[in-house]
């Protein structure tokens, strides 16, 4: 037996185990989406072909939820990146030593909090009459309950996401800025570059590979943020903050036992994610490589 054979002996079992663990739920979900399983009724679970997909494509709530999912995805991803880079730039430009370390520590704190706890905390802060945010906004004459307004609720939920993940990005980008060699920065300063120009033309292009990876990560996290919306609005008012995963949850567990219909939504969401990630990969990563 040589080292290569030994490698296979040890690697193949865990690989099979992990592959099975990863693929089985997916195959099961695809199969369920082709059946009519509804926990509430006996005799269901029969193969019905593409019926669930046809029903879903005729469901107006599905199209609303796709739009909300896309909006959420764009707002949270772009918002987190902008806030993160802006904060990191400010910290990098105006602080050093212990103050910088303190800022880094402060940036990491929000993401250490479980997202459910963070969402609950912000929900309380948004609560009319007893929350701090309506209290402060009342000084400028703003009296609308934010989570109760269909036009504002999604932005309020996004704010919580950006608060958590934007802060983490700020910490990571600050560290990336630290790793940039000083020579090109000094040279740029000698030639008169400062502030926004320095960051746009020198620093951000240098850390671009790191930023691309961060963006990829934040995009994945954005599509996995069921808990923020569930805690803060549960999809409301009406369906103005209902994302696809929330709809699947209501169908399977929250309001009904429509497991097959929920699986269909999940499969569509999976395809949606694959398309977005592939596009991003092709547009940014492959191009920059």
């Amino acid at each position: 037996m040589n080292q290569k054979q030994l490698l296979y002996i040890f690697l193949i079992p865990p690989f099979i185990f992990l592959f099975t663990l990863g693929m089985y739920p997916l195959i099961e979900a695809v199969y369920l989406s082709l059946c009519d399983l509804d926990f509430r009724f006996p005799g269901t679970g029969n193969f019905v072909g593409l019926k669930n997909y046809i029903d879903l494509f005729n469901d107006s709530r599905f199209y609303n939820d796709i739009a909300i999912t896309l909006s959420w995805f764009i707002i949270t991803t772009v918002g987190s990146l902008l806030v993160g880079i802006a904060l990191a730039s400010i910290v990098n430009e105006y602080t050093s030593g212990k103050v910088k370390s303190l800022c880094l520590f402060a940036f990491v704190i929000p993401v250490l909090l479980p997202s459910v706890a963070g969402a609950f905390m912000w929900k309380l802060m948004f609560t009319p009459a007893i929350g701090i945010i309506p209290f402060l906004l009342s000084f400028v004459g703003f009296k609308t309950p934010i989570l109760g307004d269909p036009h504002l609720a999604l932005f309020a939920c996004s704010l919580v996401y950006i608060w958590q993940w934007g802060s983490l990005i700020a910490a990571l980008v600050t560290i990336l800025f630290e790793s940039v060699p000083r020579d090109p920065i000094e040279a740029a300063r000698v030639f008169g570059a400062s502030g926004f120009t320095l960051y746009r033309s020198i620093l951000i292009p240098i850390i671009k590979p790191g930023l691309i990876s961060l963006t990829f990560y934040i995009m994945v996290m954005s599509l996995r943020s069921f808990d923020y919306i569930y805690v803060m609005t549960a999809g409301g008012p009406g369906i103005s903050t209902e994302t696809l995963d929330l709809y699947a949850y209501w169908q399977a567990i929250g309001a009904a036992g429509r497991v097959s219909y929920a699986s269909t939504i999940s499969i569509i969401m999976l395809l949606f994610t694959i398309v977005i990630m592939s596009l991003y990969w092709k547009m940014v990563w492959v191009k920059s490589s």
Binding site: G148, D149, P150, G236, P237, G238, I239, W250, G254, A255, A256, R258
Partner: peptide, 15 residues
């Protein structure tokens, strides 16, 4: 399932 749907419509009216 029915109650959930009705709740959505009522919430739209309320807001």
């Amino acid at each position: 399932q029915i109650g959930d749907y009705l709740g959505i419509n009522l919430e739209k009216l309320f807001t």
